[in-house]
Nucleic acid binder design. Structure first.
Lengths: 348, 348
DNA sequence: ATGAAAGCGCTAACAG
DNA sequence: CTGTTAGCGCTTTCAT
């Protein structure tokens, strides 16, 4: 047996030699350019099969300046607290899974790949921008939760195609997708008002997140329209545990609450649990409305009446927008706002 | 104002010109090779800052044959059923979030990036292998749920560094991480037996998943050791709804069950709900044990006694193993088995 | 310690 | 319709 030659993987050149044509012809066949003779196409194809050729992505990117990948960046504030032990709490929220699903639905058919990135510190954010500028990806979707997150601006300035998962805190030329948070919260208010609730309270999300503020404002405004001047609130952090805690606080101050709006389903679930532990009937004594219509909503007793956000659709739209920006670098910033709807189940 | 030149991003050559040195010297400084004069290093560094240079990853990969990224592939069977509407059910399982967290914890400090990929069809799997062979990533972590999944073998054959998230169904030279499923299930059995449960049943996962089988076998064997010859089981699909359904089936046939082991927490949660709806006290009349110790376990009433798997640790180990294989292509296949523990809460 | 030069594997003008 | 050629931006011998 003779020593094998180095197991170098086949290149275009190798295929060309086997097919008896030039490198460019092989390249044309592979990239589906029409101007190639039928017969030659076949010859080339079998040469490809014979050699087991696959194109080298690095070489290709080097000349096309395209990678065929986009990034999904989850940008969080750096806050590791007692109830927030590990990095990337987002990942464990059912919200995230739906988001990824929606994105994949759009990306996969186009054979675009997804890079998942997480930044929690300013240092990481700066590194990230550098990294992205190295041309690892063609564009970025940013899931940014905090109002003062510098990342949207950094990326806008970098000139890389980017789409944001919410309205930017300050006006900037970046495309984004969002749900009408205020309208959604108003839906919850209408529901509670329609039931005749008189003493309504709310569990808000962290006040440094725009979505939390908007839901709180939207809820209060809508309740005000129904004559409720004051709506007490307790702040949670979108986890189930924080929902339990918040209810405890609220009940301590206002024991006769008869309606409750939680800014997401996980907290609403926590609220339901806490209410149940205290023997308070839902919706009999307290009606509860959540937000998100996540999987948690159906896992509750009673099942949660909640505000539905079309997360998958929003995520898909985010992906489409990004792809459009990559295709046309001149495309101007666009906003897509989705309307939430109320899903009535058992809790209100 | 004169027309600006094309806004081409700076290259090594540009930096070299500004610094008054050669391209190679700049390259050396950037890649931290020692043999460079102190002063020159400074000159180069400021030239880099001045020009705003960032290395081009494609060019670099082309010569180094490294990308600095690894892939996390989620390989699922193609089964879209009525209760399984969208792709990637895995993503919405709290399990997945913990996995990603654990992986990131290991990858981030080393500045390795994560590509997320999903394959549900055989076609997609073949495409995937081609894609990976194009050199998009340096290695692959495979989350494969189904016993007959061809992907582990395909990737093993491709020669790409790869690590599997469970023991391979058939022996093959691939590194993997797993929890001792049988031992975990046995823990659940001991717990139920110790409580004095006499009529015990179990909700299994899909029988085409090795983990489901192993948990079922482990549970039955351990119960047999305690004198229980027959353990009825109903098959679920790891979702909460399927847990509810399974309990209904079980109860219809065996109304006097007093102990229940569910193969994951989501199904256990469903079981708790179904039991509650029927006015059956837990753990009073039926003791329930879950598996995973996921976030769902604490969101139940009563909170779930469950078998803890150190998912984050396992995921971190998976990442470490992969990195080791990338570093040393000769490294032989290694297995790491983690021991589950029982977490006693309220349900048993 | 530094520079010159040779590619890495591919695409895209440009000729023919 | 096909082949030739010139790079893409970087790392890495090899000289010096």
């Amino acid at each position: 047996m003779i020593e094998q030659p180095a197991p170098r993987s086949p290149t275009l050149e190798d295929v060309a030699r086997v097919a008896g044509v030039s490198r460019s012809t092989v390249s044309r066949v592979i990239n589906g350019v029409r101007n190639v003779d039928r017969e030659l196409q076949e010859t080339v194809r079998s040469a490809v099969a014979e050699t087991g050729y696959v194109p080298n992505q690095a070489a290709r990117s080097l000349v096309t300046k395209r990678t065929g990948s986009v990034a999904l960046v989850v940008s969080e504030a750096e806050h590791r607290t007692f109830d927030d032990p590990f990095l990337g709490r987002v990942f464990t929220d059912p919200f995230f899974g739906r988001l990824v699903s929606g994105i994949f639905g759009e990306l996969r058919p186009r054979r675009v790949n997804l890079m998942l990135m997480l930044t929690e510190t300013d240092e990481a954010r700066n590194q990230l921008v550098d990294y992205l500028r190295q041309g690892h990806v063609d564009g970025v979707m940013i899931i940014s939760t905090h109002a003062d997150d510098p990342l949207p601006r950094l990326l806008t300035e970098s000139g890389l195609p980017a789409v944001l998962s919410r309205r930017p805190s300050r006006p900037m030329p970046i495309s984004y997708v969002d749900a009408d948070q205020q309208a959604g919260a108003a839906l919850a208010a209408e529901c509670l008002a329609a039931r005749g609730c008189k003493r309504v309270a709310t569990i808000s999300g962290p006040m440094d997140m725009p979505a939390s503020r908007e839901r709180l404002d939207g809820f209060r405004e809508a309740m005000a329209r129904h004559g409720h001047a004051f709506i007490p609130s307790a702040e949670g952090n979108f986890t189930q545990e924080s929902g339990e805690r918040a209810v405890a606080e609220l009940l301590a101050q206002y024991p006769d609450i008869d309606g409750l709006f939680a800014a997401n389903d996980l907290m609403a679930q926590g609220a339901l649990l806490a209410l149940h532990d205290r023997g308070i009937a839902v919706p009999g004594r307290v009606a509860v409305v959540g937000f998100d219509d996540s999987s948690a909503a159906k896992a509750c007793r009673p099942p949660l009446t909640t505000v539905h956000q079309p997360i998958e659709d929003m995520a898909a739209e985010m992906a489409r927008l990004l792809l459009a920006h990559i295709e046309d670098r001149q495309l101007r910033a666009t906003a897509r706002i989705f309307e939430p709807t109320l899903v009535v189940r058992g809790s209100a």
